[in-house]
Design a protein around this nucleic acid. Structure first.
Lengths: 194, 194
DNA sequence: CAGATGACAGATATTGAAATCTGTCATCTG
DNA sequence: CAGATGACAGATTTCAATATCTGTCATCTG
């Protein structure tokens, strides 16, 4: 079980995700993680002060993978409206795949997200920060009405919640959802234009 | 305990709400409801086929109280934009009071809502129906862009979810929330205007 | 001696036997 | 005889005992 490799935080996090996937959030123990790594559980506690800290780090890693996949769109040199639409489409698609491809793991992360509101807040700050970048661009170029980018980014993020908040994941496979997504994005974009 | 009065469905529902308030959703039993009414539990089953049906009816009653309090705004003869803003403000205020004034009971109803998705769907259909009325008026009078009232009502309802979906109730007492509500409503109204 | 170990105490979770609840229905009552 | 009752069977919940886990730390090892 790779006992020769150095025990890094990343290896522990990967093992923890695997244990969470196998056992679910209720039954995944630090002892399980240690066993998966071939070390004693005391060793895991050398890298993460508590089980809660370990779960928090796994949650952060999971959310950051989504943020990073979107970051590229912010700096592209294109119409802000189109970029905003693409950004939300990418976010919706990414979340929908996370939910649909491995429902087991997604349910697990929903529990972790409920436990780690501080991490979620940071994630939302990340995402609205990216949005503010696009909105600011649009305002500067005159595509969008002159608004405060940060406050407007938050409003736009809130308005699209049904298509990225995991609370609504169970609706993401319903038939009309694409159209409803489009309707909200259209409405929001009309509201932004100069 | 009012053993003389006729046993109506409404009396059973009121007693059930009281039992739910006292004991919470997990411990409220049909036997408790019967005891509160001074009848045997078999008698309760004469009016409601199952415990689930009883809880569903209580949930529907609770949601309908909100719908009815808003219905008046739909038929008023005023600017559609102003009515739409007032309607959402009234909805947000009503829900915020339900959540803030009796958190115990509100938490109980959140559980009931989770159990009764069909009732919730009907409630949402009620509310978006009211919205479609206002949107349709705005379109007819040329205040709003020419859109499909039903689809747009749904988009507008989705876009404001953070301020009426009970899932977000814990955020409704936070400091900046009024401003965030206003920002989303402003954005949506700008998106609707002709 | 830096890093890993595993025994340990207190906290948390599991389990299965006992208690309670749900839903039915034969019987009762006004 | 319309409507209420409460005994009952099966389902669900509670509770206390038992088992497992978390987090620490004195000890070990390369």
């Amino acid at each position: 079980m790779a006992t020769t490799e150095t025990l890094t935080a990343e290896r522990i996090l990967a093992a923890t995700e695997e244990v969470l996937r196998r056992h679910g959030p209720a039954k995944a123990t630090v002892v399980d993680v240690a066993r998966a790594l071939g070390v004693s559980h005391g060793t895991v506690y050398r890298h993460f002060r508590t089980k809660a800290a370990l779960r928090e780090a796994v949650t952060e890693r999971w959310l950051d993978r989504t943020s990073q996949s979107l970051a590229g769109l912010v700096t592209e040199d294109r119409d802000a409206g189109a970029r905003l639409r693409d950004w939300f489409t990418a976010l919706f698609t990414a979340k929908r795949h996370k939910a649909g491809d491995d429902p087991q793991l997604f349910a697990t992360y929903q529990v972790l997200i409920g436990e780690n509101s501080a991490v979620v807040e940071r994630h939302i700050a990340d995402l609205t920060g990216q949005l503010a970048g696009i909105v600011g661009d649009g305002v500067r170029r005159g595509t969008f009405a002159p608004v405060d980018p940060a406050a407007t980014a938050r409003a736009v993020f809130d308005a699209t919640g049904r298509f990225h908040d995991p609370h609504y994941a169970h609706e993401w496979e319903q038939p009309g959802i694409e159209g409803e997504f489009g309707a909200v994005v259209d409405l929001v974009l009309r509201g932004l234009r100069a």
